[in-house]
């Protein structure tokens, strides 16, 4: 069965706003180049519905490292007192599960250091919020 595109009706990620894909990723990426495009698209499909922006545009992805066995994603939240953090983590895992090679284990880590700041948001995100 072919890989499925992220669906639009999951309550936690229906609001994905298409931000132009950048050549330079807003987070460090270490891994096979052929995984990169699908991985970024999958991460962009995970949205914080309170601000209607993807976790990539919010600057919540701190980094991705893929080796022969595991894909590790380091993720933060805008506040460490966020009750929906584990839901977003599960969304990221589900999104990556659809696009990454099946032999890879997926490990999504919540990272609080350094703390998130608004400066991490993309220009597109800033423009949306300034409208």
């Amino acid at each position: 069965m072919p890989e499925r595109a992220p669906r639009a009706d999951d309550a936690s990620r229906t609001t994905g706003r298409a931000m132009p894909e950048q050549d330079a990723l807003p987070f460090p990426y270490r891994g096979a180049i052929e995984c990169r495009g699908a991985l970024v698209t999958a991460l962009r499909s995970v949205v914080d519905p309170e601000v209607a922006l993807s976790i990539v545009d919010m600057g919540l992805v701190y980094g991705v490292a893929i080796d022969a066995e595991t894909a590790v994603v380091e993720l933060t939240m805008t506040t460490s007192a966020c009750p929906v953090a584990h839901v977003i983590v599960e969304d990221v895992q589900a999104a990556l599960d659809r696009v990454l090679p099946e032999h890879l284990a997926i490990d999504v880590k919540l990272v609080w250091d350094p703390p998130w700041t608004p400066e991490r948001m993309s220009d597109g995100a800033r423009a949306f919020l300034r409208r």
């Binding site: 936690s12 229906t14 609001t15 309170e50 601000v51 209607a52 919020l129 409208r131």
Partner: peptide, 16 residues
């Protein structure tokens, strides 16, 4: 409030 912007998004964000 940020809802003034997100009401122009789609899906859950607009509903919220």
């Amino acid at each position: 409030d940020i809802a003034r912007r997100t009401v122009f998004a789609g899906g859950v964000a607009r509903f919220m």
